[in-house]
Write a protein that binds this DNA or RNA. Structure first.
Length: 352
DNA sequence: GCCG
DNA sequence: CAGTACG
DNA sequence: CGGCCGCTACTG
C-alpha cells in the first residue's frame, strides 16, 4: 500500500460520509488526513511498522485516523469503507462530479428518488422528475443534463500549455478596456500547475467604477461559449469547445485598492489561503479578498490589501512565490527566511 | 474528525 | 434562507 | 468541551 493508495481510501471514505450527511468537519478531517499522507516524504508503511512510531505523530491525524491508516496498511482495506460502499452505490458518488451538485442534493436524489446511477439520473431529469423536488427547479434539472457528460468523462483537467493559449488572449483583450485598470491571471495557472481545472482571471476597476463593462466584454468575447453565472463581482463562463475542451473561466472584479488581497485570495491554493487566514486570526486580523482588516474594527480601513506583499507582511511573512503556495512547507520556509530561489526562464540555457 |  | 461554489 | 476561512459570491 503506497501513500497514494492509503490517501485514496481516506478520500473515498470522505466522499461517502459526506453523502450520508456526516459532520462536514469530520469529512474535512478525512480529506486533510489523506492529503497529509499523500504529501508525506516517507512511506507511511514504514511509520506504521516501526514500533517506536505511529501515524498519530503527524499533525491532523489523531487516534481515530491513525487506527484507520494502520488497518489500511496492514490489511489493504478498511471495513468501514466496504460497509459504506454497500449502502451508497458508486453511481451516486459519481453524481458529485456534476458541477452544481453537492452532497446534500445528491443525498436527496438517492434517498427520495432512489437514483443510483448517472443513467437513472439522466432519465429522471429528462422526464422532468427532478424539477419537482424541493430545493430543485427547472434550472437545476438543466444543469444536471449539461453536467452529466462531464461526470461520465471523469477527470476534466487541461494542460496548462493548452489553457494558456485561450486565457492569454482573454487577458490581453480585457486589458484594452477603458473601464479596467489591470487584468491578471490567478489561480492554479498562476501557480504554474501542470494541469488546471479551470481558469481564474482578476480584473480591477477604479474606485466607484461598475464591473458591468468587463463582464459584458467577457460575455461577448469570441472564445466564450456561454455565461454560467454572473453577479456584481463574479462571473463564470464556459469557453468554446475547441479551446481546451469547454474549459470554465472565473472572472473576479474588485476595486483597485483590493488588488493585492484579491490576487492573494484568487491565486490560492485553498489550503494555502486557509493558513494565511488562520495566521491573520492569530494576530487579531481578518483576511478576505478585499483586504486585511482589524478584527476589532471591521468597518475601519483595511490595514493592507493593495499589494500581495502587504497582505503577507500583515500576517508576518515575506511574499511567497505562487509556485510554492500549496501549504506544503512554504510557511516554515518563509518564517525562517529560507524560501528557495526558484528557477526562472532566464536560467535555461538551451534545450536538449 | 482534530486540536487546544 | 440553504446549498453550492471559489481560492 | 467549543471552534474549525471567508462582514467570500451566486442561485433557486
Amino acid at each position: 500500500m503506497s501513500n497514494v493508495d492509503v490517501a485514496r481510501v481516506l478520500v473515498d471514505l470522505a466522499d461517502l460520509l459526506e453523502i450520508q450527511g456526516a459532520n462536514p468537519f469530520r469529512v474535512r478531517a478525512h480529506r486533510s488526513g489523506a492529503r497529509t499522507i499523500e504529501t508525506l516524504a516517507e512511506p507511511i508503511a514504514g511509520l506504521v511498522e516501526d514500533p517506536e512510531r505511529s501515524p498519530e505523530e503527524l499533525s491532523g491525524i489523531g487516534k481515530d485516523l491513525s487506527e484507520k491508516i494502520i488497518s489500511i496498511v496492514l490489511t489493504g482495506k478498511l471495513d468501514q469503507l466496504d460497509e459504506l460502499r454497500e449502502q451508497v452505490p458508486a453511481g451516486v458518488v459519481a453524481m458529485l462530479r456534476i458541477p452544481g451538485l453537492g452532497p446534500k442534493k445528491v443525498g436527496v436524489l438517492f434517498k427520495d428518488l432512489g437514483l443510483e446511477s448517472l443513467d437513472a439520473l439522466e432519465a429522471a431529469a429528462t422526464e422532468g422528475a427532478i424539477a419537482e423536488l424541493k430545493g430543485f427547479g427547472a434550472k437545476t434539472e438543466q444543469m444536471i443534463l449539461e453536467g452529466i457528460g462531464l461526470a461520465r468523462h471523469g477527470s476534466t483537467r487541461t494542460w496548462l500549455s493548452t489553457a494558456r493559449v485561450a486565457v492569454d488572449r482573454i487577458v490581453e483583450d480585457l486589458s484594452k478596456l477603458d473601464s479596467v485598470t489591470r487584468v491578471s491571471l490567478a489561480g492554479s495557472s498562476r501557480r504554474l500547475k501542470e494541469t488546471v481545472g479551470d481558469l481564474d482571471v482578476l480584473a480591477t476597476v477604479s474606485e466607484g467604477v461598475s464591473s458591468s463593462d468587463v463582464m459584458a466584454a467577457l460575455a461577448g468575447h469570441e472564445l466564450v461559449d456561454e455565461v454560467l453565472a454572473q453577479g456584481e463581482t463574479k462571473q463564470r463562463v464556459r469557453l468554446l469547445e475547441r479551446e481546451g475542451g469547454g474549459l470554465e473561466l472565473d472572472l473576479r472584479v474588485v476595486p483597485e485598492a483590493s488588488y493585492g488581497a484579491a490576487m492573494q485570495y484568487f491565486t490560492g491554493s485553498k489550503e494555502h489561503n486557509i493558513v494565511v487566514r488562520r495566521r491573520a486570526q492569530e494576530r487579531g486580523l481578518k483576511v478576505n479578498e478585499y483586504g486585511v482588516f482589524s478584527e476589532t474594527d471591521e468597518d475601519g480601513p483595511a490595514v493592507a490589501g493593495r499589494t500581495e506583499e502587504d497582505v503577507y507582511q500583515a500576517v508576518g511573512l515575506p511574499w511567497i512565490p505562487p509556485e510554492l503556495r500549496e501549504d506544503r512547507g512554504e510557511f516554515e520556509m518563509a518564517e525562517s527566511g529560507r524560501l528557495p530561489e526558484l528557477v526562472t526562464v532566464e536560467d535555461i540555457r538551451g534545450d536538449l
